[in-house]
């Protein structure tokens, strides 16, 4: 059959008919254009995760009072405001708690080396090895006494708050976004690994507030809440402050939703 008779009939191992070439040139450009526009549209309409960072290139060494109560926290005087205590959650690498590293130093003055994770006024330190924590041998200073005075737990009353159960490490900046149903499985694994559990509450303007969660006896709620990761819940419990961290000690039957 002659080529002109083949009009638009395509056979892969023969030359493409001219009519088909004329059809495919604009079609290919159109397909590329539409696909590019879809990619552009979806990418540009993603939601913001807010400002947060995970500093993985250079570590920092911070000194203060280490407490495991129930989660490992380093309390120190805030360098920007020495009248106040800054409380820094400690976590391990990956999706694990730093409790095993921190427990031997409970209630002692230590220096801790790790990678800072920050969101808003929060700072977390990712500790990578047991020898990243070492005891300060210089004795108790006036500053240390000031810290100890400020880390006593204070009750702020019973509250009910609605929010999402998250793992604090991802939420504070390791993953952006580190919340929501797509992140649910990750949060679940993190909580099983002992990362401090957190209730993330949004106000009417979309600002987010984090509250560390504990069980009614004050112990870690992470494993118990792992099955509820990323769930939207209402939490009733006693609001507690230790250093500058705010906790909710969940009341028995204090979890709804």
């Amino acid at each position: 059959m002659k080529d002109q008779e083949r009009d638009t009939f395509f056979v892969g191992y023969l030359d493409m008919p001219a009519a088909l070439r004329r059809f495919y040139t604009p079609l290919t450009i159109l397909l590329f254009g539409v696909s590019g526009l879809i990619g552009f549209g979806i990418a540009s309409m993603q939601s913001s995760t807010g400002a947060a960072s995970w500093q993985t290139e250079s570590s920092e060494t911070l000194s203060g009072l280490l407490m495991v109560d129930p989660y490992p926290v380093l309390h120190r005087l805030d360098p920007a405001n020495p009248d106040q205590v800054e409380s820094i959650l400690l976590v391990n690498q990956g999706k694990f708690s730093a409790e095993a590293y921190a427990r031997p130093y409970h209630n002692r003055m230590v220096s801790v080396t790790g990678f800072p994770i920050t969101r808003g006024g929060w700072t977390m330190l990712e500790v990578t090895a047991a020898d990243s924590i070492f005891e300060d041998q210089s004795g108790k200073s006036a500053a240390d006494v000031e810290i100890e005075k400020n880390v006593t737990a204070k009750s702020l009353g019973v509250v009910t708050l609605n929010g999402e159960i998250a793992d604090s490490k991802c939420f504070l900046g390791v993953m952006k976004p580190g919340e929501g149903s797509v992140h649910k499985a990750c949060a679940e694994v993190c909580l099983i690994g002992g990362i401090p559990s957190m209730l993330v509450v949004r106000d009417g303007d979309g600002r987010k507030y984090g509250y560390i969660l504990t069980l009614p006896d004050g112990s870690s709620a992470s494993t118990a809440l792992s099955g509820r990761a990323a769930d939207k819940v209402g939490v009733t419990g006693e609001l507690m402050q230790k250093g500058d961290l705010i906790y909710i000690k969940i009341s028995p039957d204090g979890l709804r939703g």
């Binding site: 590329f32 696909s35 990619g39 552009f40 990418a43 807010g50 947060a52 952006k176």
Partner: peptide, 20 residues
């Protein structure tokens, strides 16, 4: 091209501490 467009647009829109 799709991956490059998606990643580039995201990185231009969300920068610094707001980056995804």
């Amino acid at each position: 091209a799709y991956i490059v467009i998606f990643v580039s647009v995201t990185n231009v829109r969300f920068q610094g501490e707001a980056s995804i």
